[in-house]
Nucleic acid binder design. Sequence first.
DNA 1: TACGTTTCCCTAAAGGTTTTAGGCAAATCA
DNA 2: TGATTTGCCTAAAACCTTTAGGGAAACGTA
Lengths: 188, 188
Amino acid sequence: MKAGLSRERLVRAGAELADEAGFDQVTVSALARRFDVKVASLYSHLKNSRDLRTGIALLALEELADRAAEALAGRAGKEALTALADVYRDYAHEHPGRYAAAQLRLDPETAAASAGVRHARLARAVLRGYDLDEPDQTHAVRLLGSVFHGYVSLEMGGGFSHSAPDTRETWSRTLDALDALLRNWPDP
Amino acid sequence: MKAGLSRERLVRAGAELADEAGFDQVTVSALARRFDVKVASLYSHLKNSRDLRTGIALLALEELADRAAEALAGRAGKEALTALADVYRDYAHEHPGRYAAAQLRLDPETAAASAGVRHARLARAVLRGYDLDEPDQTHAVRLLGSVFHGYVSLEMGGGFSHSAPDTRETWSRTLDALDALLRNWPDP
DNA sequence: TACGTTTCCCTAAAGGTTTTAGGCAAATCA
DNA sequence: TGATTTGCCTAAAACCTTTAGGGAAACGTA
């Protein structure tokens, strides 16, 4: 009875498991259980358990970049800014486990070959709508990354006690503020 | 031969272990090894392994709040802003394991009793130097948290490839930008 | 000082995860 | 059809978590 395992299917199922049970619950054992297969069978398709987690991280980065690229098509300026921001926030809400996986620290070579570089390019694309030269553009790319990641991660971690005002309101005002800042980037 | 274990000492040693080997390497077994004691002995002082990690997280939050309170004493405006920001960044660089621990998701009661609330108050103290009323002040507190946490976490995770321009330069320009933004907070 | 109690760490054991080594049978190919 | 490859299995070792119960040292008290 062949179960039809493959690295592809395993990583995808791992991503689902992460979203359902949390990224830290993603284990080779749990995955084997899910396929109703013995644990050792997975080791023909995965190098080790870290390999599984890395695979999920890379998948999440790809999916995020795909969504971002689609969201940015035909948009510019503040519209592009909020579109990109919402991609990150929505993805984290829809796929908390995958989003957590995307935060996994990758070794430099893997990171360089990942969709991470597309993310940087997409952020730069948003900044084309604002008037920034190097090195300010790089500073701004990093600021965008920081705000998006920091906000989403604090929100998901319960860092903002679910009290008034609504976090969606804060999100919208944060994007207003970022837009204002980029249009009016201060001189050193 | 009594080893002189106590919850206090275990948590503190766990924090050191986290800084040296990474927060995910913090395990009851590793800790027992460090004290040259059998694993089961630790369970008189710790409820379970999560209890250990939670203890480290609470310790880190306390230490961070202490540093922040000291750094803010006698400062206001942009000086206070950069002082607070540097406390987070420096702490994360000095104590990466503890900083990772501080990101641990706590259950609501534990969080409410933690130093997390002091952090919120300290951020509000910084904002006294700027002219913001509610609910914008709350939005701004959340923005500060997002930027500080997001920046530090991306920087430490290698998210900013160590290429030009220097990340310290970006940090300084980011604080300039935040200051400018807070002085000139946009209307909705 | 001797006795009872508490404190502290230990042994023992069960259950879960990771990973490697080697085997067998079904699928594939010549 | 026979040979090879593929795919999942059994077995086993190593490590982490957690609970149950025991024994000796430290401590308080008479």
